[in-house]
């Protein structure tokens, strides 16, 4: 047995003693340095959170020292550089000039007008708004189709088909309105110009 091994074994005894796993014998205590005993006692107290003197680890000095010797990864004093990186990650740049918006589904504005059913509003007062039945609309995405309990599946399917046709039509109408409205202003200007010319004659 080497000396180091003996010491280690003794330490194990001491640790076991402090944890109350072994009984105290005079010989073992006398053989130990008091510093080791004190250190072990402190560890035990801290682990059981019994220590009255708060155990504070002050590493701020060493961190500060370490930071001083760190290399510079980002220099915020060079404003020009950071601005150019901000622009490069801008969401608008994503627009591809040569092949924009290809291969994407129908515009969201069209999908918005899908009809799921017809509901007549209660007519409890006389305002004209309340006499108008509202077709209920929901987005196309994420609509759970209910299980059909109809005893006539053929009729149910036909009804569904008609509804789809109407949905398609309304989507097409809204898109067409949006597109036609784009020429409205120039048409109107051309019209008023023509009128003005006629009045001159």
């Amino acid at each position: 047995m080497t000396k180091a091994h003996v010491n280690k074994l003794d330490d194990q005894n001491l640790s076991a003693l402090l944890d109350g796993e072994e009984f105290l014998t005079d010989q073992e205590i006398a053989a130990k340095e008091s510093a080791t005993l004190g250190r072990y006692a402190l560890i035990g107290d801290v682990m059981r959170a019994e220590s009255e003197n708060d155990f504070v680890l002050d590493i701020s000095d060493s961190v500060a020292k370490a930071l001083e010797s760190e290399p510079v990864y980002a220099d915020f004093s060079q404003k020009q550089d950071t601005e150019s990186t901000a622009v490069a990650s801008d969401n608008v740049i994503a627009f591809n000039w040569r092949k924009p918006l290809a291969q994407l589904a129908i515009a969201a504005s069209v999908a918005m007008f899908a009809i799921v059913g017809v509901q007549t509003l209660p007519q409890d007062d006389n305002s004209p708004m309340n006499e108008i039945p509202m077709l209920q609309s929901t987005p196309l995405t994420g609509v759970a189709s209910p299980v059909s309990y109809s005893s006539e599946p053929a009729l149910e399917n036909a009804e569904k088909g008609f509804r789809e046709l109407q949905q398609q039509r309304i989507g097409a109408l809204v898109l067409e309105h949006q597109r036609q409205a784009r020429v409205a202003y120039s048409l109107e200007k051309a019209q008023t110009k023509a009128q003005a010319e006629e009045e001159k004659k």
């Binding site: 918005m112 007008f113 077709l135 009804e159 008609f162 046709l165 109407q166 809204v174 067409e176």
Partner: peptide, 29 residues
């Protein structure tokens, strides 16, 4: 504001008249 009026062949099946709206846009069928 612009208003579009569409006149079309009738769709088959039960076609209830009614309004749909999204924001300020109204579609009346």
């Amino acid at each position: 504001v612009e208003v579009s009026v569409f006149v079309q062949r009738p769709l088959p099946g039960r076609r209830p008249s009614g309004a749909l709206s999204s924001g300020a846009t109204t579609i009346y069928v």
